[in-house]
Design a protein around this nucleic acid. Structure first.
Lengths: 221, 221
DNA sequence: GGTCATTGTTAACGGTGTCAACATGAGGCA
DNA sequence: TGCCTCATGTTGACACCGTTAACAATGACC
């Protein structure tokens, strides 16, 4: 419906063979690029088909719906997010006090989450933005998040194992941790924080938010 | 684009007078109802006009854009959210230890925020969901949030005043607090939590998340 | 009571998702 | 080898959407 900015190179590769050969993946990739650049609203079935060099209706041989295509994009975005976090966590040097390392890993994961949201705002929005009240059947975020959720749990378990966090405080901690980071990221990406705070203030706010959360997790009471 | 469910009564009030008299407000109200029921995607200019009993193009006498209408709805949704929180905070009995009262107020605000998101998922999504990477000019959440932000600051100041929270931890605390609650609400509304957790687990998770956050805010270190 | 800006209306355009009917061609079976 | 079949892509059409241009009604002000 919105037909403003036609961002860039339509990139119509006018293929030679009648059958594309790998249309589903090609469309998904193209859709991911659109989402990266413009968020979920930019994922337009006809535009995707155009870029891949195929008629719009060809999409229906591989996706039941325009929404199904968007769903695929969400999955990809989540996978990229998870990978990005994994890299950051793995980059934490495992030397020194195990408790420090475990906490540093959690912090690295949190920062990677927020960094991803800032650096790939379009993908992040696409992954998490719900634009309609979901019906009976879930059509929110694909279940990939479950894996990420377990990974986060692992980080927290590690902290408990080093004695830095009371075990009885462990249950539900993933949800609290995820909530903070997710909320901060969303308030930042195109949200109020991005507008009301300078870049420096944002950095400070992020640090303090993470400090506070980690204190809540590991502070003795 | 999506033209599936036509939810309910089009409610076309075929007015008698040529001029509506209060078209702008009527359209805004109707749009808010659509958003409440179906989220931002349900706010369709032509449908709004239909319900108010007016031609689609009449909207352009009062809104520059379909987006402007949506923007108005966002403002209303935020106002309702703020009002809802205000009521909850005011309902906290001011008896007993001032520190307890101040903390209870913060907790009430947090719970009201999440309750609003759950009970008015469509409005909440409409208020906060960004569907496109914003351009130079902000087009995210209207600035009403600034007022809510200050109110939250007031709650935190009160806690500091009672000595329950170290003053040096005060700066940036709004952001941390808001982040948790906002993130939890968004993970809940149509998000992963709603699907992976039973209702009882959700209640427990919420309690623990708030506990953790408040501990982070007020725990001595 | 006449003038005119405000607020409506109709007609039309391009864009979008989607369906039905048709075209192509790659792979298996004779 | 040749044919048949079915997955894959195409064209054409429809309904809906946002938006603009040109026109009509009305109410307020002199």
């Amino acid at each position: 419906m919105r037909h403003d900015e036609q961002v860039s190179t339509p990139k119509t590769t006018p293929r030679t063979r009648y059958h594309h050969g790998d249309l589903r993946n090609a469309m998904t990739d193209s859709a991911v690029e659109l989402a990266r650049a413009g968020g979920p609203d930019a994922v337009v079935l006809r535009e995707v088909a155009r870029r891949v060099g195929v008629s719009a209706t060809a999409a229906y041989r591989h996706f039941s719906d325009a929404e199904a295509l968007l769903f695929e994009v969400k999955g990809h975005a989540l996978e990229l997010l998870a990978r990005s976090i994994g890299v950051a966590v793995a980059a934490v040097p495992p030397d020194g006090d195990p408790g420090d390392v475990a906490v540093a890993r959690l912090r690295a994961a949190a920062n990677a989450y927020i960094d991803f949201a800032v650096d790939n705002a379009g993908l992040f929005m696409t992954a998490f933005c719900l634009t309609k009240v979901p019906g009976q059947q879930f059509e929110g975020v694909p279940f990939t998040d479950a894996a990420a959720f377990q990974a986060l749990g692992g980080l927290l378990d590690a902290i408990v194992a080093t004695g830095r966090m009371p075990a009885e405080r462990r249950p539900g901690a993933e949800i609290a941790a995820w909530s903070v980071v997710h909320g901060y990221a969303l308030l930042l990406v195109g949200g109020p924080l991005e507008r009301h705070l300078s870049e420096q203030e944002q950095a400070r706010a992020r640090e303090r938010t993470l400090d506070l959360t980690i204190r809540g997790l590991i502070a003795a009471d």
